[in-house]
Design a protein around this nucleic acid. Structure first.
Lengths: 244, 244
DNA sequence: CGGCACAACTGGTTAAGACCACTCTATCCG
DNA sequence: CGGATAGAGTGGTCTTAACCAGTTGTGCCG
């Protein structure tokens, strides 16, 4: 167990060594302790930690304070192959989609939300935060905001499974018609990373969506964080003659 | 010039101090040297560097080896406000869009590209790599691949400015009609970071696009990297009665 | 007067060691 | 027998102290 004597930064050589070392381990297995690795590789702990930092950032390793450092729960390459393509609105039937409700309650809109939902700032808004899970793998965090008046009587169970839009239509007579969404690149913050089981600063998509009903009234404003390694957005576009 | 004595990690306090310090500086201005800051703040250099690392990762500061550390060329909040919304196909007329051609040449397709473009692996493919620039700020890296047969005689100048799709139509009789694109979250690698003037591992959108002409033939396969702080994708969606 | 070399910066990397915070386990005491 | 506790092991943070590698300006020498 020794380091390549090749050129390059020591930190990078340590990183590459660890990458090889980890390659034929199963997910979630522990690697040797930092102090042991230092002795075996003949590098200082800061150097070793810098190498591990890289691998933690890229999701290969996961640290647990007081317990050890473990191989990541998944490989990114595997993850990419499993990515469900399709629109955000019609997730593929494959896999067991579930929602874990993290937050459910009403409060006054406040200035920002009031503008987004075109309500008075004092109007009540139902705020729901849910974790979307497919086959026991967290996929996304959705933060939904709906005018409370529109969905009075909605209970958390309504959002645990099945189609929320169907519930809106059948129970509340709200007929969703159109949406404007913006997609942008971001990275996870601490809270999001923990919920999605990915490292902090992991690539992610932030999607903001404003949905309107048939009358043009705003039904919801939703801000979601999707895991970058599990989600891709596919869309088809058509051009008319004037485009260029 | 001294540190808050508040609780929390020293690294975080240094980071917050620098954030304040930088707040009323102009873009591109130099901050004091690391050694000076250490003395003035009473922290060790690794601690200071860890704090600076955070700010470099988030784009607030930019390091230049041998020269110094500078405030980022932009503020993220400013950048978000200036983000051009709209489709990828009709960038707003505002701002001076330019392209810097980085690569321009033909080569055999090879197996992967052949599949993407539905060509024989030995067929020639024109590969163009260009940096899209708006108002002197790099925005995106586009890697285009076109069947060489389709665009024989295309020169780099054709892609420097104006609409590439118009050139295709007027010069080569290629009438672009539809495209399928996928968007996913990623972070910049070393090369991309350098070209886009952002830190490595900066949030970015990767967009893959396959474009077809009126006859259904494949015109191009393009893989682009867009700066996450400068680009957002907005789309409008309409539901029919069956959706849910 | 001009070009080249050196010196004095800058950030970049690595080392060795100390101490803190958290987790787990094994042992001791009730 | 069971629960509390101490200790050993883990990662987390911070310090001091070098040396390496680029950049830039100054001053000497041709």
């Amino acid at each position: 167990m020794t380091l390549n004597t090749g050129a390059g930064l020591k930190r990078d050589r340590v990183r590459d060594f660890l990458l090889d070392f980890v390659a034929d381990m199963r997910a979630g297995e522990a690697i040797p302790s930092e102090r042991d690795l230092c002795k075996e590789l003949g590098v200082s702990r800061p150097t070793l930690r810098a190498a591990i930092d890289d691998l933690v950032r890229s999701g290969v390793l996961v640290r647990e304070h007081g317990r050890g450092t473990f191989t990541g729960p998944h490989r990114v390459t595997q993850a990419l192959a499993a990515t469900p393509s399709g629109s955000f609105y019609a997730p593929p039937a494959e896999g067991h989609w579930l929602s874990r409700i993290l937050e459910f309650g009403s409060a006054p809109a406040g200035p920002q939300l009031a503008r987004r939902l075109q309500l008075a700032p004092a109007a009540l808004v139902l705020r729901v935060v849910r974790l979307r899970v497919v086959d026991d793998e967290p996929m996304a965090i959705e933060r939904l905001h709906l005018p409370h008046l529109l969905v009075d009587g909605l209970v958390p169970d309504d959002m645990e499974s099945g189609s929320f839009y169907r519930v809106l239509r059948e129970r509340f007579g709200v007929d969703v018609r159109s949406a404007v969404q913006t997609i942008e690149a971001t990275v996870t913050d601490e809270t999001e990373a923990a919920l999605l089981s990915v490292p902090e600063h992991f690539p992610a998509l932030m999607v903001e969506r404003t949905t309107r009903d048939v009358n043009g009234g705003i039904v919801e404003f939703t801000r979601s964080i999707y895991r970058g390694d599990r989600y891709r957005v596919t869309s088809e576009l058509h051009f008319d003659a004037a485009s260029g």
